[in-house]
Amino acid sequence: MNLSVAYCSALGGREENEDCVGFCADERIGCFALADGTGGAKGGALAARAVVGEVLRSFQQVPGVRSCNVDWTLAAARRALGLARQRHPDCAQMNTTLATLVIDTLAATASWCHLGDSRIYLFRKGRARILTHDHSVLQAMLDAGLARGEVRARPERSALYATVGSRDIPPTAMCAGPLKLMSGDVFLLCSDGFWDSVDEGAMEEALDEAAFPETWMDGMLGRIPDLSASHMDNASAVAVWVGPRIEMTRVMRAPCADAHRAG
């Protein structure tokens, strides 16, 4: 099986892009990471860059043994955030979400972990499935039956109980075990600014119309009425396609991106 990747990171209506995306992949294995610096404290963009950079550096050191158990990504992220806080005492409260995905094409498995409300989706046979569980107070209330309705478009959904800088790691931060890949699987890592603006139905519709990950990303972004509207948060995503729909394996290394698309 082959991998093909596209990503986007849009500023939205914010003054600064506090999202960061990055990935490192070859024919055999790939690591994909997305972080969204949390609001309310100075240094969110710095925190996101530090965390994504350290996750990818750690992966590059010993990629072959990192495909099944991805708890190392959480350790790398927390280490990076702690060091960044020490080096920038004026940003001692900076924090970030994290979503990481590791795909091993020879073993045909995918593993992931996350903290916060950045999500990882699997699209199998064109249908969306959310692999992660938002670590938000609103989601916890919905789970407990203390609230009703959708998470999207509700301002209180941004209150998080788990992030990279949290003291405790919830059990839902890690996948239960590696997922066996099927040819044609598609993954999407995205920040809350992205999934809040593009629902699962729109994601599926855009995927059905797309021949390549770049055109899928274009299609999803095209469904956002106004990316630069004042209410728009930063919106970032990484699309990973697995299987024969891609004509050739694309070997890529990408730094943190605050531009638009690349593939």
Rank of each mutant, 00 (worst) to 15 (best):
122 L>A: 10
128 A>R: 01
26 D>Y: 10
233 D>T: 07
85 R>Y: 12
80 A>M: 08
188 L>D: 00
131 L>F: 12
212 F>Y: 05
58 S>H: 13
73 T>S: 10
231 H>Q: 10
61 Q>E: 14
186 V>R: 00
24 C>V: 12
105 T>F: 03
148 R>P: 00
256 C>H: 00
60 Q>W: 02
186 V>I: 11
137 V>W: 02
248 M>S: 14
87 R>S: 15
141 M>R: 11
60 Q>G: 14
182 M>F: 06
6 A>N: 00
244 P>R: 06
158 S>V: 15
27 E>D: 14
182 M>S: 11
34 L>E: 04
170 P>K: 07
108 A>F: 02
233 D>S: 11
119 R>M: 06
226 D>P: 02
77 A>L: 05
161 Y>C: 05
147 A>W: 01
34 L>P: 03
221 L>P: 02
50 A>D: 02
49 R>M: 08
181 L>N: 04
98 L>F: 09
22 G>E: 04
128 A>C: 12
196 D>I: 03
146 L>D: 11
172 T>H: 08
216 W>T: 00
81 L>K: 05
101 L>G: 05
100 T>L: 05
48 A>K: 04
74 L>I: 13
174 M>K: 13
145 G>W: 11
28 R>Y: 07
254 A>N: 09
18 E>K: 08
236 S>W: 02
208 D>M: 07
113 C>A: 15
203 M>I: 04
53 G>N: 14
29 I>V: 15
98 L>E: 09
254 A>H: 14
45 A>P: 01
33 A>R: 01
192 D>A: 11
76 A>D: 04
85 R>E: 12
74 L>V: 12
257 A>N: 12
207 L>H: 00
226 D>L: 09
43 G>R: 03
190 C>I: 04
246 I>L: 09
35 A>D: 01
151 V>E: 14
11 L>I: 14
50 A>M: 10
255 P>D: 12
129 R>C: 07
54 E>C: 14
184 G>K: 04
147 A>M: 11
4 S>V: 05
107 A>N: 10
72 W>Y: 12
114 H>L: 11
217 M>W: 02
19 D>W: 03
181 L>Q: 04
229 A>T: 06
249 T>L: 05
204 E>F: 02
209 E>V: 02
188 L>T: 03
121 Y>W: 09
171 P>S: 13
120 I>M: 09
177 G>R: 14
258 D>R: 13
158 S>F: 11
46 L>E: 07
210 A>S: 13
214 E>Q: 09
114 H>M: 10
251 V>N: 12
243 G>L: 10
191 S>K: 02
210 A>G: 03
185 D>A: 08
53 G>F: 01
31 C>I: 06
236 S>G: 07
229 A>V: 05
103 I>T: 09
97 T>Y: 05
94 M>S: 11
79 R>V: 03
258 D>P: 06
118 S>M: 08
92 A>W: 10
102 V>Q: 01
55 V>H: 00
42 K>H: 09
177 G>Q: 14
5 V>K: 00
211 A>I: 06
190 C>K: 00
131 L>H: 13
180 K>T: 12
263 G>S: 13
165 G>V: 13
19 D>L: 06
21 V>P: 00
64 G>C: 10
227 L>P: 05
27 E>L: 12
183 S>K: 07
223 R>V: 02
194 F>E: 00
119 R>L: 10
78 R>E: 12
35 A>R: 01
48 A>L: 04
222 G>T: 05
181 L>D: 01
63 P>E: 05
216 W>H: 05
240 V>M: 07
